[in-house]
Design a binder for these strands. Structure first.
Lengths: 162, 162
DNA sequence: CCGAAATCTAACGTGAACGTGAAGTTTGTG
DNA sequence: CACAAACTTCACGTTCACGTTAGATTTCGG
């Protein structure tokens, strides 16, 4: 099971995912991730799953605007899901499997709910903004028609006083 | 033009929009809004447009997760749009009107871009999560079928050892 | 007009999310 | 193996977005 475990150091990883090394250490302090390994000295060493986790953290922070606390809870749910998956595969009892799967379903449903709510509210804002755009675009079109669609160079129009 | 100018005090407004009075004063410090008036003493007095502006601020903060700095820029664009609208209505020159309308179009397009990007990235996250949900739901369904869809009360199934 | 409640300004306090040294250790390279 | 670059662990500093007194007005109900 020991893979081509290509381990990387902190600054390397930080550069790739767009975080600072300090931020990564901070997330570790907050319990968001533990590096896959440490060197003989004690330098942090990250594997590819760590990198993906950091990418997810950055996405949730920058794109979704979630706080570190929110992210902690979301990832805890994800982690529990992963553990559930392992437990699921290791048990033979269908009843136990069902219980685990149902628990997992609840967790993803919570995540979907959070994301969905956020998207919905943002969508409402976007709709309002688009409505304004439509009105303005209408003005522009009509005026361009009146002016004979003269590009950026506007020449005076007969009958209109300066 | 002097309307039924129903002016309200800060705590009243704060309660309605779901902010604290301190937060409202802070937004004023940051230049986000100036109350419609002040009393003979110097208590802040807000009109309905102020209330709507505060509601917008709260939405951008809580729903979209924008920083106060982001919100400042977004509202500056909106304000410029409003001023453009006034200027638009007050000028007779079609050329000038077109220039104003085109400027407005650029501004709403920027806003739409910001919101759209955010929604798109959130949508990608949601899609991933939904995909996971589908897999888990499949497990649940299959297991429920195997178990004869016994609800929450699980009774032992013949042939399955404890 | 008077007292309680609300608001004012001004200033300091706070939690989150890191930034920024300092001082010592580890690692890769010539 | 020498040595600079990268890393380590503290620990204090900073910015943002307000919270929290403090002390002085102002407003409102009776």
């Amino acid at each position: 099971m020991t893979r081509d475990t290509h381990l990387r150091r902190i600054q390397d990883v930080a550069d790739e995912v767009g975080l600072t090394s300090r931020a990564i250490r901070y997330y570790e302090e907050m319990g968001l991730l533990i590096p896959a390994a440490r060197s003989d000295g004690s330098h942090r060493l990250y594997d590819e799953s760590d990198v993906e986790r950091l990418r997810a953290i950055r996405g949730l922070r920058d794109d979704a605007g979630f706080s570190i606390g929110d992210i902690t809870r979301l990832l805890e749910d994800s982690d529990q899901l992963a553990r559930s998956r392992t437990a699921f595969l290791e048990t033979e009892s269908p009843a136990e499997r069902l219980r685990i799967a149902r628990d997992g379903l609840d967790r993803v449903d919570r995540q979907i709910g959070l994301l969905g709510d956020k998207i919905e509210r943002l969508g409402a804002m976007l709709a309002e903004t688009r409505a304004r755009r439509t009105r303005i675009a209408g003005h522009v079109e009509q005026l361009e028609a009146e002016l004979g669609h003269a590009g950026a160079s506007l020449r005076p129009v007969a009958g209109v006083p300066a």
